[in-house]
Simulated scan of single mutants.
Amino acid sequence: MVLLVGAHYTYAEVPLFDWVRDTFGFERNHYDRVGHLAQGFVPAIAIRELLLRTSPLRPGRWLFSIVLFCALGISATYELIEWLAAILVGQGAEAFLGTQGDPWDTQTDMALAGLGAILAQMVLGRTHETQLRKEDQIVI
């Protein structure tokens, strides 16, 4: 849903976040920040489940770190695709990228994806393990 809303309005022009920007005096529409947080949060549990089901990894620091690094890799790949598209588009690059004048937009986007992956694992990790145990899908 986050992607569909962002695609419909463009991330820099989602009306609810225009209202938030204007109400709180922000310099930019922060909807794309929500999108990048979700870009780390959503795939983290899928990556975690894939690794728990198909690898010898078990819950702990290594699994946590590898899931985080996978989510960061996905985010970095997305940012590189955006960069390539901006080069191909040319003059409309600023509008396409939606950086809204922020020179640190790419780095912030990747940091938010990393934060999303960390939050997903911290908030949902134990529940995820409990569900896998109940299904007898994995020994944890």
Rank of each mutant, 00 (worst) to 15 (best):
Pro43Arg: 04
Ile81Asp: 05
Gln39Ala: 14
Arg48Met: 11
Gly101Asp: 05
Asp102Gln: 12
Phe96Val: 08
Ala85Tyr: 03
Ile45Glu: 00
Cys70Ala: 13
Pro103Tyr: 01
Pro43Lys: 04
Ala46Trp: 14
Ser75Glu: 00
Asp102Tyr: 03
Leu80Arg: 11
Phe64Lys: 04
Val42Asp: 04
Pro56Arg: 14
Leu52Lys: 11
Gly98Ile: 00
Gly92Ser: 08
Leu97Tyr: 00
Tyr78His: 08
Ile87Asp: 09
Ala85Ile: 12
Leu52Tyr: 06
Gln100Trp: 03
Glu82Phe: 04
Val89Leu: 06
Glu94Asn: 15
Glu82Asn: 13
Glu94Trp: 00
Ala46His: 12
Ala93His: 07
Gly92Ala: 05
Thr106Glu: 14
Arg48Thr: 09
Leu57Glu: 01
Phe96Ala: 08
Leu97Ser: 01
Gln100Met: 10
Phe96Thr: 05
Trp62Cys: 14
Val89Lys: 03
Pro103Cys: 10
Ile87Arg: 12
Thr108Cys: 14
Ala85Ser: 15
Ala85Val: 13
Asp105His: 03
Gln100Pro: 08
Ala95Met: 00
Gly40Ser: 08
Asp109Ala: 03
Leu88Met: 06
Gly92Gln: 11
Glu79His: 06
Thr54Ile: 09
Phe69Trp: 14
Ser65Thr: 14
Ser55Pro: 07
Glu79Val: 09
Ile66Gln: 07
Ala95Tyr: 00
Arg58Trp: 02
